[in-house]
Amino acid sequence: MECAVLSDPRNAAKIVRLHFHDCFVQDDTITLQGEKSATPNVDSLKGFEIIDSIKNKVESDCPGVVSCADILAIAARDSTVLVGGPDWEMYLGRKDSKTASYELANSNLPVPSEGILPIITKFLYQGLSVTDMVALSGSHTIGVARCQNYRARIYGDYTASESYLNDLRASCPAAGGDDDTVAPMDNVTPNLFDNSYYQILLRGEGLLNSDQEMYSSFLGVQTKQLVLQYAHDPLAFFHQFAQSMVAMGNITNAVDGGEVRRSCRFVNT
């Protein structure tokens, strides 16, 4: 992970995002539709080849022991540390699922256009609290968003400096632009894991509607207070982020008994 992040700091965000989506399940096969092509994942998730590389090295020294799920959880933790974020103790022993669910990936993963209540509901459904939701959203302090996911916002009621807004609109035109053009979700320190993401929300400059809703929605009484706290207290944010990452990493184990995959892209034959 150190080599990957040194070669491109954005790789840290890619791996953290993979862990969030827990999408490293398997590619489509003749008999099974994987999760990569689900709407929240397609053209969005990157970094699979980094996990492949790690898995290959681990398998060569320690075959059949360390799951892809554990590798992804550890890699996400190390990615966070490598760009200035907090460290935390890992719980290990996860198994890799033998199945995938395209339908659940579509229905359970939050999407950028959603309002605050549907997103809270999705976190609660996974056993995560509102505090977990706000803290975990702080991972957007690194990484980028696709034009497709913020176009409506920057041509609507978006509070930002004129120069920054002009730059966003120039790279993401209202019509005829490239949906895959990206912009950092934290335009202040995009490659540093810090609390500036929350400070951006205080100014109304959250790039994604789902982020800004945590502070601006009249329904977000609790989330607004948490955004304020993390914006002014980076240590509180780091502490809660670490706790919430542990909680998220232990949501569930494989319901099908699980296995340790030889290749993270496919179930064992």
Results as ranks from 00 to 15, higher is better:
Leu201Glu: 13
Ala236Pro: 02
Asn41His: 12
Gln33Met: 08
Asn195Gln: 06
Ile116Trp: 02
Leu226Thr: 03
Asp22Lys: 12
Glu2Gly: 06
Ser60Pro: 01
Asp256Leu: 04
Pro118Thr: 13
Val188Leu: 14
Lys14Thr: 13
Ser7Gln: 13
Asp211Met: 15
Asn195Arg: 09
Gly138Pro: 07
Asp70Lys: 03
Lys95Val: 04
Gly176His: 07
Ile50Gly: 01
Lys95Asp: 02
Leu82Ser: 07
Leu128Val: 07
Leu92Phe: 04
Cys23Gly: 15
Gly138Tyr: 03
Lys46Cys: 03
Pro40Arg: 13
Ser161Cys: 04
Met245Asn: 12
Phe24Lys: 08
Asn11Ala: 03
Phe20Trp: 13
Arg10Leu: 14
Val58Ala: 11
Asp233Phe: 10
Cys23Tyr: 01
Ser216Glu: 07
Ile30Tyr: 05
Cys62Ile: 12
Val16Lys: 10
Ile54Ser: 00
Ala75Thr: 11
Ser67Ile: 09
Asp27Gly: 02
Lys36Tyr: 14
Asn108His: 10
Leu136Asp: 02
Lys55Ile: 12
Phe218Asp: 11
Ser139Tyr: 04
Leu192Phe: 11
Leu168Phe: 04
His21Gln: 09
Val255Ile: 08
Cys172Glu: 02
Trp88Ala: 08
Pro86His: 08
Gly206Cys: 11
Val130Cys: 07
Leu136Gly: 02
Ile154Pro: 05
Val81Asp: 04
Ala247Trp: 01
Leu136His: 07
Glu103Pro: 01
Ile15Arg: 06
Phe48Tyr: 12
Gln148Asn: 08
Gln229Lys: 15
Cys172Gln: 06
Asp87Glu: 08
Arg265Ser: 07
Phe238His: 11
Leu32Thr: 12
Thr181Ile: 07
Tyr158Val: 07
Met133Arg: 08
Lys14Val: 10
Met214Cys: 03
Ile142Met: 08
Gln126Trp: 09
Pro184Cys: 08
Gly127Arg: 09
Asp78Gln: 15
Ile154Trp: 02
